[in-house]
Amino acid sequence: MGDICYGVVSKKGKSPPCESSQRAARLRRIEIRRCKPSVATPERENGQKRQKLEHTPSSELLSRDCENAVENSIWNGEQIGSGNGKSEAKKISVAKQSSIMHPKFGSASVCGKRRDMEDAVALHPNFWRKGDGLHYFGVYDGHGCSHVATKCKDRLHELVKEELESREGLTDWESAMERSFFRMDREVAVRDADVSSPNCRCKLQPPACNTVGSTAVVSIITPDKIIIANCGDSRAVLCRNGSAVPLSVDHKPNRLDELNRIQAAGGRVIYWDGPRVLGVLAMSRAIGDDYLKPYVICEPEVTIVDRTAGDEFLILASDGLWDVLTNDTACGVVRLCLGHRAAGGEISEKACSDASTLLARVALARQSADNVSVVVINLKKR
């Protein structure tokens, strides 16, 4: 308990008795402060440095604290601090950010002149958490009914993920994609009535019919590669340095190598409103369609290309678009749309969605008679 002092300062200016005790208390506090650990803060004579710190926003101070926490933390048993540790901490933070970020993309699907919508679109950025920056996009064009395309939308990316995990790395993309497509084909072959959607026409044809299938064009975007797996007549087109680069070739029955394969298996290609397998199916590869095996197979063709600084965007679309638009025309429409929508050098997801919608509208304006599904993925790196 502190001393209470009573008295009046004398006219001669002598200090009261309590002043000496107050000085002693100050001296004790000074000694205590000297014993406490402190952080030296550089201070200029005019106090500008202290004033700057006092007016620093709290969010900025919080971010500095987070950086310091990363730099002084322990990673895998090693201290991250000064020197090389700072660069390691930055690498860790960049890796964490890259796993969260994904390329801008947009999609559009329209029924068009068809009675039913049988297309499906899969959009799965960062679909595999064990891989840094892996993004999955797919377009599935169903025929006969919608349930095979819907099943591919719900399951194919999961099968790809399982294959990658079983192989413990990204060593063989071609084998992983082929295995995933074969497994998907087996899953749709054992479909029962409960799997179909409420609007599925197959409910009117018990037991489950085997005359339903779907094309599949799948793209996996990595930080340095573009992997395309295509089965059917959907298509992937890359715009690189202003030019259209097809990354898949349509599986049509009149394609020379496909025609030879079908005939070698004992099948025929009959022209009925275009070339068709046994006069029925207008494509030579698809998931499902058990009644046309072994002439129609589910094996995809896999294309792997390295990403370059000139890559602008990737288009995945069903044949409802490609029946009425060339690769160059489609890329020109998207470039025009993204060029008008870009603000400050950045392309937003709305711009990609607008480009996809514009492509679908152009296809309808050109009298496309099929469902139209489009995915546009921006590939420009920041």
Rank of each mutant, 00 (worst) to 15 (best):
D3G: 07
D3Q: 09
G7C: 10
V8K: 06
S10I: 01
R26H: 09
R44C: 14
E54G: 07
T56Q: 14
S59I: 08
L62H: 04
L62V: 03
R64I: 12
V70R: 05
W75G: 01
K86I: 15
I100M: 08
K104N: 14
G106M: 05
C111M: 15
D116H: 12
D116P: 02
L123Y: 00
H143D: 08
C152D: 09
D154L: 13
S166W: 01
T171H: 14
A176E: 04
S180N: 01
M184L: 15
M184I: 04
V190P: 01
P198S: 06
K203T: 12
V212R: 03
S214R: 07
V217K: 02
V218I: 15
V218Y: 01
S219H: 00
I221N: 00
I226H: 04
D233Q: 05
P246M: 05
E258K: 06
L259Y: 14
I262D: 02
V269S: 08
Y271I: 14
G274D: 04
R276E: 10
I297K: 11
C298T: 04
C298D: 08
G320S: 07
V324D: 03
T326R: 02
V334S: 08
L338Y: 09
H340F: 10
G344F: 09
G345S: 09
S356I: 11
V362D: 07
A365R: 10
D370P: 10
V375K: 00
R382F: 09
